[in-house]
């Protein structure tokens, strides 16, 4: 198994706040890895540092064997690394279709883009029905689908997802998790940040627990799901 994403001793500060205190973890090609943790643990900070939205103070982020810690954020998606951000952040005043096409912004292969668009519409028929609707008028669940579809439009090797189930009703949560599995089955490596630890551990291969900027527990997702400490802190019955 080859390592796709390798994070080592990552330190990130917001002014004087030490948000990530030298964390290390990795994601193998083909895996679903989940990063769970309470509010403010540093999950979003971790993902945003990986995809170049926040600068790191020190450490290393290797992607496919290449150091990307100083790579400008906008160059990563062309290298196959897509990010579905926390809170969806769809372009509210643009149509569903325009949002999706922005997902393919760095691609030049017209036919390939068309093919990917068809796949995205297969994953999310709702987006096809609403392709001319303004994204800001979609429901929360639909916006999440759009944010995921938009990331898929870049035809990524790896997606990082930041709390895709946040604020969604149980039916939508199940649908979103089903689609994450489908995306994974189609060959995409997944790094999933979730507060819904039950669900995340049920689909992941491995997991890390992040507590106030430190990784405190790591292991096979199954083992973590049965770990009494994890159960007490993160899993509700």
């Amino acid at each position: 198994m080859s390592i796709m994403l390798d994070v080592k001793d990552l330190n990130v500060y917001y002014g004087v706040i030490h948000a990530l205190k030298g964390i290390s973890f990795h994601v193998n090609k083909g895996e679903i890895v989940t990063l769970i943790g309470a509010n403010g643990a540093g999950k979003t900070t971790t993902l945003q540092t990986i995809t170049g939205l926040i600068p790191a103070r020190s450490g290393s982020v290797m992607y496919n064997g290449r150091e990307i810690i100083h790579t400008p954020g906008h160059q990563l998606v062309a290298n196959g690394l897509a990010h579905v951000p926390e809170g969806r952040r769809v372009f509210a005043t643009l149509s569903v279709y325009q949002n999706l096409m922005l997902g393919a912004y760095t691609r030049k292969d017209k036919d390939g883009i068309e093919a990917t668009l068809r796949t995205v519409y297969e994953h999310f028929p709702r987006l096809l029905e609403r392709k001319n609707q303004m994204a800001g008028t979609l429901s929360g669940g639909e916006q999440q689908m759009l944010a995921m579809g938009r990331a898929l439009m870049s035809n990524p090797e790896m997606v990082v997802l930041d709390e895709p189930s946040m604020g969604l009703s149980p039916i939508y949560v199940n649908e979103i998790f089903n689609i994450i599995e489908k995306i994974h089955d189609s060959g995409v490596t997944v790094l999933l940040v979730e507060q819904n630890a039950n669900k995340a551990l049920s689909i992941a291969d491995r997991a890390y627990v992040l507590e106030t900027g430190n990784i405190t527990i790591e292991g096979a997702a199954q083992d973590l799901a049965n770990d009494p400490k994890v159960k007490a802190a993160y899993l509700s019955e």
């Binding site: 954020g73 922005l102 870049s154």
Partner: peptide
Amino acid sequence: EDKGAATLMGVDV
């Protein structure tokens, strides 16, 4: 609309 999200699309802000 959103510089961060635009960056994630690969747009050079």
